[in-house]
Amino acid sequence: MTLVDISDVALERAAAAARQAGVPLRVERVDVEEAPLPPGPYQLVLCMNFLWRPLFEAIPRVLEPGGLFVFAQPTRSNLQRNPHPSARFLLTGA
Rank of each mutant, 00 (worst) to 15 (best):
M1W: 04
T2I: 12
T2E: 05
V4H: 07
D5M: 02
D5E: 02
I6Q: 10
I6H: 06
S7D: 14
D8V: 12
D8K: 10
D8Q: 15
V9D: 12
A10T: 04
E12M: 08
E12H: 05
A14H: 04
A15R: 11
A15L: 15
A16Y: 03
A18M: 08
R19F: 02
Q20S: 14
A21E: 00
A21N: 00
V23N: 00
P24K: 01
R26A: 15
R26E: 13
V27G: 00
R29Y: 04
R29C: 11
R29T: 01
V32A: 05
E33L: 09
E33K: 14
E34V: 05
A35T: 12
A35W: 12
L37W: 03
P38F: 00
P38C: 05
P38A: 00
P39G: 08
G40S: 11
P41L: 07
P41C: 08
Y42C: 06
L44W: 12
V45S: 02
L46W: 09
L46Q: 07
C47E: 09
C47K: 02
C47D: 12
C47V: 15
M48I: 14
M48W: 11
N49S: 10
F50V: 02
F50R: 02
F50H: 03
L51T: 01
L51Q: 03
W52M: 13
R53G: 02
R53L: 12
F56L: 15
F56W: 11
E57R: 11
E57F: 07
A58G: 08
I59H: 03
I59K: 02
P60F: 04
P60G: 02
P60V: 03
R61D: 13
V62M: 09
L63I: 02
E64L: 09
P65V: 05
G66Q: 05
G66F: 04
G66E: 03
G67S: 09
L68Y: 10
F69L: 04
V70R: 13
F71L: 04
A72W: 10
Q73A: 12
P74I: 04
R76N: 14
R76Y: 00
R76K: 15
S77D: 13
S77W: 05
N78Y: 13
N78P: 00
N78M: 14
N78W: 11
L79Q: 12
L79Y: 07
L79G: 10
L79I: 06
N82A: 14
P83T: 03
H84R: 11
S86R: 13
S86N: 08
A87N: 10
R88I: 04
L90S: 08
L91R: 07
L91I: 05
L91Y: 10
L91F: 09
G93Q: 15
A94P: 11
A94W: 14
A94V: 09
